[in-house]
Write a protein that binds this DNA or RNA. Sequence first.
DNA 1: CAATTTTTTGGAAACGCTTCCATTGAATAA
DNA 2: TTATTCAATGGAAGCGTTTCCAAAAAATTG
Lengths: 369, 369
Amino acid sequence: MLCSTISVLLDLWKRFQTEQFNWKQRRGKMATTIHDVARAAEVGIGTVSRVINNYPGVKPATREKVLATIAQLNYKPNALARSMISKRTNSIGVVVPFFTRPFNIEMLRGVEAELARVNKDLVIYNVDNDNKRDHYFSELPMRDRVDGLLILSLPISDTYAQNFKQAGMQVVLVDSYSPYLTSLVVDNVTGSYHAVKFLLEQGHRSIGFVNGITEGSFKFNQANDRLIGLHRAFGDFGLPFEPEMVVTNEWNRQGGREAALKLLKRSYRPTAIFAASDMQAVGVLEAARALDIQVPEELSVMGYDGIEVSELLGISTIQQPMRQMGSSGISKLIEHSENPSKLPELIRLDTTLITRRTTAKPCAKDHHS
Amino acid sequence: MLCSTISVLLDLWKRFQTEQFNWKQRRGKMATTIHDVARAAEVGIGTVSRVINNYPGVKPATREKVLATIAQLNYKPNALARSMISKRTNSIGVVVPFFTRPFNIEMLRGVEAELARVNKDLVIYNVDNDNKRDHYFSELPMRDRVDGLLILSLPISDTYAQNFKQAGMQVVLVDSYSPYLTSLVVDNVTGSYHAVKFLLEQGHRSIGFVNGITEGSFKFNQANDRLIGLHRAFGDFGLPFEPEMVVTNEWNRQGGREAALKLLKRSYRPTAIFAASDMQAVGVLEAARALDIQVPEELSVMGYDGIEVSELLGISTIQQPMRQMGSSGISKLIEHSENPSKLPELIRLDTTLITRRTTAKPCAKDHHS
DNA sequence: CAATTTTTTGGAAACGCTTCCATTGAATAA
DNA sequence: TTATTCAATGGAAGCGTTTCCAAAAAATTG
């Protein structure tokens, strides 16, 4: 009799020790779980889950009790466990080339604004070379980290696009196009057309074009679109466009400067330069300054994009609706997530011509040789 | 006999139907799991797991076989399930106020570079008001979505800091300080001191200061630090600093412009203006242009931060090591994740004075009334 | 009041992985 | 040959949720 009592006590003591141990080991790392809440509130885990998710069919009194317990225990559901079952992560991914470039940042502004509205997290997949892009394109369809993907300014092959589709990952393309995915494109042909048309209307006849190169294979259509628009404008005026007036270089300041230098050192110097991006236009301005050429008196400069810098420096430009591209992209993406059977759409956005201080009619005394 | 055969066939057929059904229903959504691989490779799931994680103790031949199966089935482990157990998510979070502002973008450049090196994903928590900040500070410790947190330019209360610590979430602070967390701070007092000292050395005696306001309660020390540095410089020169030479306004272009307008319309106009940020300095430049005041002949302008725009516009400024702040922040964070018992450190970074085209010695014929 | 319907509730199963222990097979020692 | 050791392997348990079904409780009906 005594013996059995002692044995029970020993048992209890042992269990106590173990619990102490577990407790200590777990402390600080282990958060309260749904089971803790259920136990404390004296209900089942199902009920707690229903309360957390605001499901109907819980008696108000019970809901109260659970809510109180949750608050008291400072319980936060584990997002991972939650996503694992529900297949929803409450965060969306954005694949973006060189995400710190002004143009992309501007789009991200729109993205962020829209995401904040719907209260979702933002995961950024930065791409700075072809490998990384392909890596993401092949990896991301299977990743279960994001509910949807916004791809900015990155062309995607049909194979990859179909992969995404097949894997059930919602994708929206911005500033790029695929027949398999909802795409938001900007009519850059028309944008470029208007830029050059404006220059021609101002009376310029000798117009240089600083185009961007196709880096890796990013932005492949961008350079083309610009060129097509330019040709169309010249065509409208019944004017020929000399191919040697095009210089192609990096999509940045230095690229613009170098290209402009080439153009401006020719004996037959252009009276206007159209740059494929604002950053290149900044480079053109630098080149002009270096050669002591007055802008806009001796040289008109036209940019493209409409990033903030163009405003600061007073560069005339073609404004792309960058913010809107980002925000509409996200809202389209969310539409598609909520209704996965929706068919791909093609949305077109337009550009705006903004004239500032770098463009003017050409001077009478031109620098023709 | 016949009957039993038929019954078996029926059974088979039924199972076949079910499998078909499951297959169809799952197609496109359900990825291959570790079990599929194990079955196909004719090994146990444990072995597959060991192969995936590059654990030792798998016979080379077996490893080969599993690897081949993985490739053939195009199997990618489910990151969520994996993180749930291992408590590692392979992504880190960055809490940043107004992440599209140039200064923050610059830091994010460094962040991204470092993150790419260690191959981790980037989750951005953008903060644009106090509520959101507090929300993140109280929510994020329990979130299991990220392995660590980098907090940029955001002051954090001791309570929150301790919460993070206690929850076992690694945190590094950049451009902000807490005794409980590893912090990377920039010595902005000295930076500001050098800016003003430079102006004084150039001979300026009437110096206006465009300071930034404390938005919400972000950046609270920034404005102070600038002011302290300024006072110190004046002190060094044994000169008094008139409080009315300070105008405080938003940390942006418009804020700078408005503040400068006030300063420049005074009868006793300053010969130099020091702005607490480059964007404000841009505003100062705009104000000067509006009032037809030549820079730097009639007015010297000094910025602070060293964002790209300051280079484009040729603004003299105090360069903060933004890139480094981001990258060092991440590497510190990773150090801490790998060695959680590491004690908090305080790392100090320095600024550099960069003189460009907006500063000069004051003209003899000053505009004193 | 009993029978029936409806509302609440509890908790097992499942999600896809890692961890860990038991088991197998091979290699070595006696 | 048999006993002993060690490397390789299989798979159950468990992570913290949601989902779903059966059971209990409450409300309604005749």
